[in-house]
Write a protein that binds this DNA or RNA. Structure first.
Lengths: 231, 231
DNA sequence: TGGTATTGATAGTATTACTATCATAAATGG
DNA sequence: CCATTTATGATAGTAATACTATCAATACCA
């Protein structure tokens, strides 16, 4: 039986000390996911985190400049993980339409524990992505953060999927626009379905919300790019 | 010459004392728009606002429970204003497809000063909507806030436009999902175009970004709902 | 064994998000 | 026109947040 654990390649500007390298670092990731999920990002503090892992506040600051950077790190990790899964699942697929479909499936799919990354609770992280990820870039420092490469995870995944779109229909004018919309909408609609249900049909029937979301997204994407889809 | 100013109907749970009723209230609205635009929501505080309007912090707390409520108020005001403009501009239009098109136009249009509301700088408010509006509901208290009706502006506008969608194609399965996506995407893409341009084609050519955004949105909406659009 | 890096413990600071209290001014009503 | 309610302003205070500085203890490494 093969036991493997992987480390995702993270842009080194995301952290001060690499949290994947040390025991304390991995505890910070593990417990911060748990606590942000539980408390929400605004009520989450490094002091509370330090208390729960029985460490000290300054020790955490040695890994992350501040809690915003930690959030950006977690969200970047999520996008890198998704990109990895999309690559993995589309390896032997030749038709771009099929690749695109798989990417949408993986994007909108319910997330479960991935044994390759023992210290990450992917289900909790996905809830954080849904509720908090927009906060990574909706700040006044977005341009500085972007220059530092903090959003490369999101951007490169967008580029990858937009590449599939271009292969399906090289004449479509807005591949990146469509894909960034797709990526955002996938999470947003799950949030709406949960908290503001009058904004969406998803969750109104007894069909599984993830499947329904997938159908909505796949429909919109293929209708938009594929002029001849009805033939 | 007719001089009219209007007051939009705001849900009374949004405020403690109605800011449209008093001089100080209107100053709070006016200057908070200016300051949130300038500083961003996180660096904006009631203390700084009080200083700039030469009032006192507690006086502001008499109008709004806290700065989050003030933001929710401003965003709700924006949605009510848009709903009003959509009603006004679709009054004599009979075909639902045309109504829908006008709604998308108004949604994505560049916003300029509306003389009907002298104390509101709509251009600045629109920048706030783009950069901050998601923060109104991405909180742990979203369900409580929703029960209080704080998001009625957004929800009723979504319902209105989804109504047009249903008239265009009564068989389309996801009218609200599509429209909430449309409403979010309209702002999001302008943000991306400004700060994360690799996520969108909008702004890459010398075509006006608002027009380009409109074309993208109109295309996606009509392709999605109108099976026969190409005929 | 000596040195370097990592962590933990304690303490401290400026700022934030409020709340309480009280005086004054302005508007309102009999 | 005086009395009273109401809105505002001024001052002060509190608990919590987002850090930063300092130093000792420990571990690991040559």
């Amino acid at each position: 039986m093969i036991m493997t654990t992987l480390k995702l390649d993270m842009n080194s500007n995301l952290y001060l000390r690499d949290p994947q390298e040390t025991e304390l670092g991995r505890r910070i990731l593990e417990v911060s996911i748990e606590m942000i999920d539980e408390l929400g990002f605004e009520k989450f503090t490094f002091r509370k985190l330090a208390a729960r892992i029985e460490s000290a506040e300054p020790s955490i600051y040695r890994y992350f400049e501040n809690k915003h950077r930690l959030l950006v790190y977690l969200i970047a990790w999520y996008w890198n993980w998704l990109a990895y899964r999309i690559d993995f699942n589309t390896q032997n697929i030749t038709t771009p339409a099929e690749k695109l479909k798989i990417a949408i499936d993986l994007l909108a799919q319910k997330k479960e524990k991935d044994p390759l990354f023992p210290s990450i609770d992917e289900a909790a992280l996905y809830r954080i992505v849904i509720a908090e990820s927009d906060k990574t870039y909706l700040t006044k420092q977005v341009d500085d953060d972007n220059k530092e490469g903090l959003f490369l995870g999101f951007k490169s995944l967008c580029k990858k999927i937009a590449g599939y779109v271009k292969l399906v229909n090289p004449d479509y004018e807005f591949p990146h626009t469509l894909v960034s919309t797709l990526m955002q909408t996938a999470h947003q609609q799950l949030f709406f379905s949960d908290h503001l249900p009058s904004l969406t049909e998803i969750g109104r029937t007894n069909e599984n919300i993830y499947d329904m979301n997938k159908r909505f997204l796949t429909d919109i994407v293929f209708k938009t790019i594929d002029k001849d889809q009805l033939n």
